[in-house]
Simulated assay, not measured.
Amino acid sequence: MSNTETDGKPVLKYPFKSPPERGSVLEVAPGVHWIRMPLPFKLDHINLWALDDDDDWSLVDTGLRDEETASVWRELLANYPKQRRLKRIFVTHMHPDHVGMAGWLSRKLGARVWMTRLEYLTCRVMASDSGREAPPEALAFYREAGWSDNAIESYRARFGRFGNLIHTLPDAFERLNDGMELRVNGNIWRVVTGNGHSPEHACLYCPTLKVLISGDQVLPRISSNVSVIPTEPNANPMADWLASLAKIRREVPDDVLVLPAHNDCFHGLHARLDYLASSQHRALDELETTLESPRRAVDVFTTLFGRPIDESQMAVFGMATGEGIACLNYLVHAGRAVKTTDAEGVAWYRRSA
């Protein structure tokens, strides 16, 4: 086992020296197999989990829709026993690296997709934006955040690409509910939902195996993006996120092996949850202090992320804006900040008196 401690972060234990190679699997618990898929981003991988399911198998998350991922899937399936069918596809949430290949695998192998209702419906709605013009409400949202005309034009040109990153979902699905118990290979897995990173994210916890498949809800080395989006501009996802961290701590014991969507499998769930919550509260406190002088959403990146973020990196700039607004909305909802909008439609935030 290896462990890590830097910048006050808790020691986490990593029981595996390295992830599985391309096109191969690694058993991490009885009947639970680790698959790693490539991503064409700075975060260059996602972890998927194949579960023995009696004489068949089930899958948790699917990878991004692109030719590289499809190629790896073809390699894996070519080496898989033909008599073992894919029985169920569990999707933790609707972000493309998790749900992207679900429709392709479902149609190819005949497996039903299982998702929470909000994740499934939100995915269908976002995919329906393909080919549409960027709506006026979205343009006003980013103008309010302080985006330049060039950034808004770039957003307008990129709008509606979500559907290109996923294969179309089936028109029917099986619903995952919070607290639902699923029997897989003779073991009970309980659904533990969370909010903030996505609408109704599903983790899967098996008490017998002492395993938590955490998706993006708990990651060992990075924190999940928590963003406000134009569809719900006054939402408070940061409060939802913090409540979800506390919920997982209550409902899942510390002795589990955590199987995250990114980075490596680890022990130390409660320490990681505590660190994520405390570091977020520290960031919110620092943000409140900077609001002694009025700030726009685009002015708080250095405070929150430790560095400026240039609009030339539009994907990162967009996520930073969403998370910046999430933090500002949290303070507004808590009565710790106030928001005013100027004649140009730009929002300014200041600390409450």
Rank of each mutant, 00 (worst) to 15 (best):
S244R: 05
S244D: 12
S244V: 14
L245E: 07
L245R: 00
L245M: 11
L245F: 09
L245T: 03
L245D: 04
A246W: 02
A246Q: 10
A246E: 14
K247Q: 13
K247R: 15
K247Y: 14
K247L: 14
K247D: 14
I248C: 03
I248V: 13
I248N: 01
I248S: 02
I248L: 12
R249V: 02
R249C: 06
R249T: 08
R250I: 07
R250K: 13
R250V: 07
E251G: 02
E251F: 05
E251D: 12
V252E: 00
V252R: 01
V252H: 01
V252K: 00
V252P: 00
P253G: 03
P253Y: 05
P253D: 03
P253H: 06
P253K: 01
P253W: 06
P253A: 02
P253E: 02
P253C: 03
P253M: 03
D254P: 02
D255E: 13
D255C: 12
D255H: 05
V256A: 01
V256Y: 04
V256M: 03
L257G: 09
L257R: 02
L257M: 13
V258W: 07
V258C: 07
V258K: 06
L259P: 13
L259C: 13
L259Q: 11
L259A: 12
P260K: 02
P260M: 06
P260E: 06
A261C: 06
A261F: 03
H262C: 01
H262E: 08
H262L: 04
H262F: 08
H262G: 00
H262K: 03
H262N: 04
N263W: 10
N263T: 08
N263G: 05
D264Q: 11
C265H: 10
C265I: 10
C265L: 11
F266I: 07
F266G: 04
F266W: 11
F266T: 05
F266H: 09
F266S: 05
H267R: 10
H267Y: 13
G268K: 00
G268F: 02
G268P: 07
G268H: 01
G268S: 12
L269T: 00
L269W: 00
L269Y: 01
H270T: 05
H270P: 03
A271E: 13
A271V: 01
A271N: 05
A271I: 00
A271L: 07
R272F: 09
R272P: 07
R272G: 07
L273V: 04
L273H: 01
L273W: 02
D274I: 00
D274T: 03
Y275N: 09
Y275E: 10
Y275F: 15
Y275C: 05
Y275H: 15
Y275A: 06
L276Q: 10
L276M: 12
L276R: 03
L276E: 13
L276H: 08
L276F: 04
A277F: 10
A277G: 09
S278D: 15
S278G: 10
S278R: 13
S278W: 10
S278P: 02
S279N: 08
S279Y: 04
Q280D: 12
Q280P: 00
Q280W: 10
Q280C: 09
H281F: 11
H281A: 08
R282V: 15
R282N: 14
R282A: 15
R282Q: 15
R282I: 15
A283L: 12
A283H: 12
A283T: 14
L284C: 08
L284F: 10
L284K: 03
L284N: 08
D285A: 15
D285Y: 12
D285P: 04
D285N: 14
E286P: 04
L287F: 12
